[in-house]
Design a binder for these strands. Structure first.
Ligand SMILES: NC(=O)c1ccc[n+]([C@@H]2O[C@H](COP(=O)([O-])OP(=O)(O)OC[C@H]3O[C@@H](n4cnc5c(N)ncnc54)[C@H](O)[C@@H]3O)[C@@H](O)[C@H]2O)c1
Ligand SMILES: NC(=O)c1ccc[n+]([C@@H]2O[C@H](COP(=O)([O-])OP(=O)(O)OC[C@H]3O[C@@H](n4cnc5c(N)ncnc54)[C@H](O)[C@@H]3O)[C@@H](O)[C@H]2O)c1
Lengths: 265, 265
DNA sequence: AGCCGCTTGTGAAGGCACGCACAAAGTTGC
DNA sequence: GCAACTTTGTGCGTGCCTTCACAAGCGGCT
């Protein structure tokens, strides 16, 4: 719509065009499913089939795919192998992305030992920690180095992605070192909000937040289940400015134990 | 404005009113930050401060908070303790949510041993696996049971959330068992799309997808860096309706080797 | 007591994303 | 070679989310 921005033939035919972030995430899912289908010997898939397998609307899937070009065959579907190839190109998987992992504790060990990354084009090629017991050991054949080596090692090995699995308080410092070393993409597992320059992309994996979103749904389901009729009153806009009447909560001091888990860490 | 559309609008006094999902996720982040602020002895915060600390727009933050009620004081800000209390109420954290974890492998071990969940109101109270070497051991004081006990144990302990950390192929089966046992919220770490009834909420943590999104940005940055100006032309709606002219793509058969890493795991 | 400055809460507007529905384009069968 | 069928690619309406901008409300200062 807004910007068709004709595919400039001059520059390579790649034309990444701006793909909506939401679509990028789904494209990655399609790609994985296509890999499985290829293993099962599938030659072609229709948008309907692929959509069902990945749990999305088929129109949305087609629109997603349309962002990377027109590689389907009307009346038939998509060639699995061709689509895999195009998706890899569009997602930037034709260049290997070397990954560094900082913080080799409980979570870091699991991540370092996980074969699913390297197998998909994201080899973990550098490990860092500060614990003297960890520095020097090998995990999955990779040496754990001291964090002070981050700058040199990342530059040497052309690290493009950093994964931070240190305790929260250490994360910002590590982040700064990575940025300093030229790393422009960071995946953060620590429960803190990282401050970075504009050109650096940060994604956060926050499991506690995931659980809280689920908990919210549990609570909602419970309320809906308890109160028989929850509709109708919706249409009453005016009358009530009645704010929440919870008698207890008065502006500040609240009665019950303030720290249900208030000062958790 | 058009039609109310039976949106499940809350009513009860507690007024959970339907909070946008995106806001729920941020509310959880605000809550954590507020916990830290409380530790540091902060009494009140302004939306501007909290927004800066959590990396969001302050107007968005205020709107998010407005979904749970009006607990701010104009000219001053928000009482930290009161806001914490209200957020916990709104997010359903006044009820403890017992969590079950299925699959105690590399990742599962890290999750089971993580104190950050229990400390936030999500105690992991049940562990399951099929590996005979694991069934029977204790992790963090929790017994690992065989998956065949999922139904009984979940019902007994009032499990409301299930976390799946098994290999992909086993995930759907485990999911079915959880649903059967009455679990209505699932956090899935396996790289598969789970099929569940409508009333069950599934969230997926997919690290490979996270990396691919980052890789996409790496690729985009690279292209932008290489070609002098790829933006700007944005404002050229010019040749509107012209269909996509990607010259190369010939409708079907594509030349190159289809399987760059097509059949990866 | 009254004014002033600060901060909240929200109306309104813009943008993005979703999903329907359909024309275009290709295949298969006769 | 033509008709019927299948499936893609996308224009378009709808609703959600974000962001701006400002009136209203509150505390502090004089
Ligand atoms: N374990 C989980 O399941 C889990 C779940 C969600 C979030 N997290 C988060 O992931 C992070 C890591 O969790 P964990 O359970 O592995 O913790 P952990 O304590 O087991 O591991 C942390 C590791 O980081 C290292 N470290 C500490 N300071 C460092 C520094 N300045 N530079 C480099 N390394 C440093 C430590 O030596 C240790 O090896 C934490 O922020 C945690 O909140 C973990
Ligand atoms: N380790 C990581 O860092 C990581 C990262 C991203 C995704 N994942 C995904 O998380 C899942 C677990 O990864 P992992 O590295 O812990 O694997 P793992 O092989 O170390 O652990 C899997 C565990 O599940 C158990 N299991 C197997 N089948 C089971 C069944 N039917 N019921 C119950 N338990 C069963 C196994 O006994 C094992 O203990 C995988 O789906 C993996 O793709 C892991």
């Amino acid at each position: 719509m807004t910007l068709p921005q004709a595919g400039s033939e001059g520059v390579a035919a790649r034309v990444p065009r701006s793909i909506p972030e939401a679509s990028v995430a789904r494209l990655a899912v399609y790609l994985r499913m296509l890999g499985e289908l290829a293993e099962q010997g599938a030659d072609t898939v229709s948008s309907e089939e692929l959509a069902a397998a990945t749990g999305v609307n088929s129109a949305k899937l087609r629109k997603d795919l349309s962002y990377i070009g027109s590689y389907g065959i009307r009346g038939v579907g998509y060639s699995v192998s061709a689509l895999v190839h195009q998706l890899e190109r569009a997602l930037g998987l034709n260049h290997r992305q070397a990954v560094a992992l900082i913080g080799v504790g409980n979570l870091g060990h699991a991540l370092a030992g996980y074969g699913g990354f390297g197998g998909r084009g994201f080899p973990v090629t550098a490990l860092f920690d500060v614990d003297p017991d960890l520095v020097g050991i090998h995990i999955n054949g990779i040496l754990v180095e001291h964090v002070r080596a981050i700058g040199d090692t990342c530059r040497e090995r052309g690290i493009t992605i950093g994964m931070i699995a240190t305790p929260g308080p250490a994360a910002q410092g590590i982040c700064d070192m990575l940025v300093e070393a030229g790393v422009r993409c960071i995946l953060n597992f620590a429960p803190v909000v990282l401050q970075v320059p504009d050109e650096v992309e940060v994604r956060k994996v926050d499991l506690a937040v995931e659980l809280q979103i689920l908990a919210f749904h549990v609570a909602r389901k419970r309320l809906v289940a308890e109160s028989p009729e929850t509709e109708a009153s919706l249409a009453v806009p005016a009358t009530d400015v009645d704010v929440v009447p919870p008698p207890d909560a008065q502006t500040n001091g609240h009665p019950v134990n303030s720290t249900l888990n208030g000062g958790m860490r």
